[in-house]
Computed example of a mutant assay.
Amino acid sequence: MSFLKKIFSTKEAEKEPEVLLEEESPLCPIKAIVEQDERVVYFYLWGDEETNFGIKSCWVRNLTHAPDELETKLLNKGIPPLLPRQYCKFPEGQEKLKPGDLSIVWLEEGDGAALFLKDEILAIIPAWSGLEDFPGYARDCKGHGNFAWEITDSNELPERVEQAIACWYSWSSELNPFRLEQPRILEVYEDLLGKSDKYYAIDGNQWPPKGLYLRNGASKTVFATVGLSLIPMPSVEMYVDDRLEHNRIELGIILDSQLQESDLQNIAEWISGQACLPWDNITFFGEGHTINFQPLNSNKFNSVILTNQLELLPKIELGKYRNSHVNFLWMVPISQKERKDVIDNGSESLISKLDKIGTAIYSLDRDEVV
């Protein structure tokens, strides 16, 4: 069934809309769809049903005369609405679009996209589409229309689209971002944590490439991801003011060295799974967030808190990548009670308590702090 029919389903629809373009996000479980019927063209982003992304829609152009008022009766019947005249740069309507003239450019996070007509942006749906009645931006809209907003000169999204084009192009080069950044990241780790004893590829031979540093020392075992920071996390800008300070991460964990080879393998596989979560779930990791911890089957410590605020933890500085600060977050095992303390009182309360127990934070045999 077409997307127009899914959102505006009705027995009165005269003709099945034509799907002009359909494309999957390279990072997130999101599909871009462009549909056209006899009256109007719409651009959609559709998230997988297992996510909270939903369906985001943006008007692209009317193909016939714009109405003077909102088509409330037709909208209530499920018929795809035209944009009212006052919001149309071309109120008499425009010609139909041809599939071969259209293309999609995904934003670097993979949770937003721009629709191009040849070399010109027609519409943009960013991550925050759907919030507070905001649908998306369209070239042929003026003002804040019901189903699209105008792309004004002050809008930063066209520049972000251009940056995304450069980003995607860089991955087609032989010296792609991973080949350039992997040695630098590993050098930072080895200078601070010691020479690696093993290096895992944790991408399953799928793009984007990701690796895992392992230092299996006499008293401590250290894992640290390599390459997560090359892809900005989705959804960040919906929750923070400055996405460039929060949208790139690497992850690490330090444990007392009482681990068998099978334990090391289990942890590596677990970290590999966590490394995909922000994009698979269209979410992000940040300071104070908690996630499940299952690789060692601990009866007590079955979660981790993500932090770089504990005084004892090494401070890993990875600088910036593509103008974003790279945050290194340690994954510190915590109990169910301690996780509840984070939920009830915020992460600062637990971090303060963990700071007081020193090197015990590395042990799965420690006492709970709450």
Rank of each mutant, 00 (worst) to 15 (best):
V226F: 00
V240M: 01
Q294F: 12
S262T: 08
K6A: 13
F285D: 02
E95F: 07
I79T: 02
F285Q: 04
L312G: 00
S172Y: 06
D197C: 08
C141G: 02
Q265A: 07
D367H: 14
S173M: 07
L175A: 08
A127D: 13
L312Q: 02
T225H: 01
Q294Y: 11
I104Y: 05
K6G: 00
Y199K: 13
S349E: 12
P158H: 09
Q309W: 07
R184L: 14
P81V: 13
D263K: 04
L157G: 03
L175F: 14
E120H: 12
P17V: 11
G143E: 04
P208R: 07
F134C: 02
I202V: 05
L83I: 06
S103D: 13
S2N: 12
D263H: 08
F178M: 12
W330G: 04
S9A: 09
T221C: 15
I249A: 00
P126D: 13
L296Q: 05
A268D: 02
V369Q: 12
P91K: 09
L306R: 02
E23F: 05
E120K: 15
L74W: 11
R322D: 12
M238G: 01
S298E: 08
E159P: 02
W270R: 01
G112R: 06
E108I: 13
E35V: 05
E348A: 05
I33F: 10
P177W: 06
I316C: 00
K198L: 07
V326K: 01
R85N: 08
V332H: 03
L115I: 08
C276M: 10
L70S: 04
L63Q: 05
V161K: 07
D140Y: 08
N281M: 14
S9M: 04
L186F: 13
V19I: 15
S262D: 12
N62E: 09
L175V: 00
V240F: 01
L312T: 03
A123C: 09
E181L: 11
N76K: 10
S170W: 11
G194T: 10
L97N: 05
K315F: 07
G288E: 12
M233I: 15
A113N: 11
K56V: 04
L107N: 04
N146S: 07
R61W: 05
G227R: 07
D133H: 11
E317S: 14
T307E: 00
L313I: 08
Y200D: 09
M331D: 04
I124P: 04
K89M: 10
Y189P: 04
L244E: 13
Q163I: 03
N216P: 11
E95Y: 04
K337P: 00
D197M: 03
S129C: 12
V19H: 03
E190N: 08
R139T: 06
I124D: 15
L306Y: 11
Q206D: 14
S352A: 10
G100R: 09
G217F: 15
A224R: 07
K11R: 09
I361H: 09
I291G: 00
W59N: 10
A224F: 06
L45S: 03
L21G: 08
G93E: 07
F285S: 02
I334L: 05
E18K: 13
E38Q: 14
T290L: 01
S173N: 09
G54M: 11
N281L: 15
L27R: 10
A360P: 02
F3I: 06
S303K: 08
Y44E: 03
A224Q: 05
L82W: 09
N266A: 15
K77L: 12
M1V: 02
V34W: 00
S9I: 02
G78R: 03
E159D: 09
L277Q: 11
